[in-house]
Design a protein around this nucleic acid. Structure first.
Length: 630
DNA sequence: AAAAAAC
């Protein structure tokens, strides 16, 4: 029943703020199109190519939206946003930490785990160092078991980054002040990071300069730092914003975070939160995390103690907002991690409810980072022809041969995850499983057992495919191949991290013919061995013209997931002319690729979109319901 | 079709 109500609620707001996706008012589920890219006032409804072949959100897996210019450098490329809820500053300088978010607690100095500094008289006063917390967050110095979210710096310098948009700032080369903040820099050092990764080199000046950012970068490319660094640096320099005055409330129980990070799985959210704790250490910024399946009372108490940077899964966030315990009114930074997946997985109503109530991502800069996983020579990809009935025994062979190291096995269904892990355990292997039907406690335990190598074999569903950073995974087995090649790329990206080598083995049979073409392309691009049977099956065809080619010509591999949907002529600014970009520079790479990739969609469907910003309801939410969210 | 995600 609650579900029912909730859904109604969401669809109501949908119709209120519904992006005018096309002339028919229909919303195409699978192909999310950001407002700026929609041809909202265009005449005829876009043809199939435009509707089906325009996957801008597939083309991006995290994005940062900056609201309300003035928080940071004050330039705010995004321009103002209409319909700002009114709020009353609580007296700029006299605004100290204790008055913020937890007025009911007087001078309470409870251990905060991470940020326990203050903002006082317009200054950032970091808290004292705490050896215990430091050990917890950063590990024991020189502990060989601690692999710092693994970046091989030399290797990473070769990763191509392409930035497009108007006025892309020059990348930074070091963690330094300016543009970063000294306290942040010291936390970055404590965390063991020495040099910004390519994505960070770009994202730092972009976000610090107040620009919106849409970026495509795999986990392992340093993308978490990519958004956390500039967001926290801004926060450390500028302090908290004024909390809206609550009328008729004796006790402030509602939290007003200034930054919000959304991610599609609980584990990912939890991982991002742990990173945030490191970088917020001793600062005034208090990170919080909320997700389902865990005790809400505990989360509420955490939030009540102050919540400046919130990391959340959509469902729990919606719940807390509807309970009136969190308001998004003060949000200045919004990050959607694994954005494409979130929109694929049915989070769309929540996300749209959260995001699209205002003009979203205006004049953004698009950043695209070359594939870290698939094209990396760090990962050896093997494809074996295995019929379903033979999979178990082939897997046993592999496990016997590969022995040491963490092995991550992906299957398609939760049931399969259970039965396969049971089977392995019965065969005497230390296996466990993670999937969405296990309790949160079980999930966390499984992950921890795996990470710590007490249980070095993990059977997983898609829940573990993306974003999770587990150091030292030696072998990824695609026991069942996914139907989407992007999922394959994400899965194998769990290994070969941090400059280590990894092996990815996939079991292929004719049931997987749907991905055969994409898989072929991928293997060739990554200079991997291509078994003959793949070519054979590809030639047999599958009756529908090749993989995802249904979308007007297919998305060329390599550039697909990494393309700005706007066809900027000269706006493109290649930072590195890597092979991934076909050696083409700027204009050709973008214009040409877009035309090829999206067929006629670009012109007909949302060609004029980028200049527009003319989406839906530019003045933002109008109904009281919408306002309460912000 | 199945995956994830709120109680």
């Amino acid at each position: 029943m609650a579900d029912q109500l909730n859904m109604n609620n969401l669809s109501l707001s949908e119709s209120q703020h519904a992006p005018r996706q096309n002339g028919n008012g229909g919303f195409v589920r699978s192909a999310y199109i950001p407002p700026h890219a929609r041809g909202s006032t265009r005449g005829p409804a876009p043809g199939p190519a435009a509707m089906d072949g325009a996957p801008p959100m597939n083309a991006c897996n995290w994005l940062t939206k900056i609201f309300r210019p003035g928080f940071g450098a004050g330039r705010g490329g995004g321009g103002g946003w209409g319909g700002a809820p009114t709020f009353t500053p609580r007296g700029g300088n006299g605004f100290d930490r204790n008055a913020y978010g937890n007025p009911g607690q007087g001078g309470g100095q409870q251990a905060r785990g991470s940020g326990d500094g203050q903002w006082k008289d317009g200054k950032h006063i970091p808290g004292p160092s705490n050896p215990r917390v430091e050990r917890e967050l950063f590990g024991v110095p020189n502990d060989p078991n601690v692999q710092h979210s693994g970046i091989n710096f030399e290797k990473y310098d070769d990763i191509p980054v392409e930035a497009s948009g108007q006025g892309v700032p020059d990348p930074v080369t070091t963690f330094s002040n300016p543009p970063l903040d000294d306290h942040l820099i010291s936390n970055i050092e404590l965390s063991g990071y020495k040099v910004p990764t390519p994505v960070q080199k770009y994202s730092i000046p972009i976000v610090m300069g107040g620009r919106d950012l849409m970026a495509c970068a795999q986990t392992g490319s340093g993308k978490t730092g990519g958004f956390l660094f500039p967001i926290l640096a801004q926060a450390f320099v500028n302090g908290p914003s004024a909390t809206p005055v609550q009328t008729g409330m004796a006790r402030q129980r509602k939290a007003y975070p200034t930054s919000l990070v959304l991610a599609p799985t609980r584990e990912l959210v939890s991982q991002i939160y742990e990173e945030a704790r490191k970088f917020a250490y001793r600062s005034w910024v208090r990170p919080c995390v909320v997700y389902g399946g865990a005790d809400i009372g505990h989360q509420l108490r955490q939030i009540e103690r102050g919540c400046d940077l919130l990391v959340a899964t959509p469902g729990r966030l919606v719940d807390l907002i509807e309970r009136g315990r969190i308001s998004l009114q003060n949000i200045k930074y919004l990050v959607l991690d694994e954005a494409d997946r979130m929109l694929d997985m049915g989070f769309e109503p929540q996300i749209r409810r959260i995001l699209l109530a205002r003009d979203f991502l205006k004049e953004y800069i698009f950043l695209s980072v070359g594939r870290v996983g698939s094209t990396s020579e760090n990962i050896t990809q093997k494809i074996e022809y295995v019929e379903d009935v033979d999979k178990r025994s082939v897997l046993l062979d592999i496990l016997h041969t590969h022995g040491a190291g963490l092995t991550l096995i992906f299957v398609e269904t939760k049931r399969m995850a259970d039965s396969l892990s049971d089977f392995l355990i019965n065969q005497g292997f230390p296996a466990t499983s993670i999937h969405g039907d296990r309790t949160q406690r079980e999930r966390e335990r499984a992950l921890e057992m795996f990470r710590s190598a007490r249980c070095p074999i993990l059977v997983a569903t898609a829940v573990a495919a993306r974003g999770l950073d587990i150091p030292n995974v030696k072998h990824v087995v695609n026991y069942d191949l996914p139907t989407d090649i992007d999922d394959y790329v994400h899965r194998i990206g769990r290994t070969g991290r941090a400059g280590n080598t990894g092996v990815a083995t996939a079991f292929f049979n004719r049931g997987n013919r749907g991905v055969v073409r994409d898989l072929l392309e991928l293997l060739k691009e990554a200079n991997q061995e291509v078994p003959a049977f793949l070519e054979t099956v590809a030639r047999e065809g599958s009756g529908f013209g090749g993989g995802r080619g249904g979308r007007g010509g297919g998305r060329g591999r390599g550039a697909t997931a990494t393309r700005d949907v706007r066809s900027f002529g000269g706006g493109s600014r290649p930072a590195y002319a890597g092979s991934q970009w076909g050696g083409s520079s700027g204009g050709a790479g973008f214009g040409g690729a877009a035309a090829g990739g999206y067929g006629g969609g670009m012109g007909g469907g949302y060609g004029g979109g980028m200049g527009g910003g003319s989406y839906g309801n530019p003045s933002g939410p109008s109904g009281p319901g919408a306002n309460s969210w912000w």
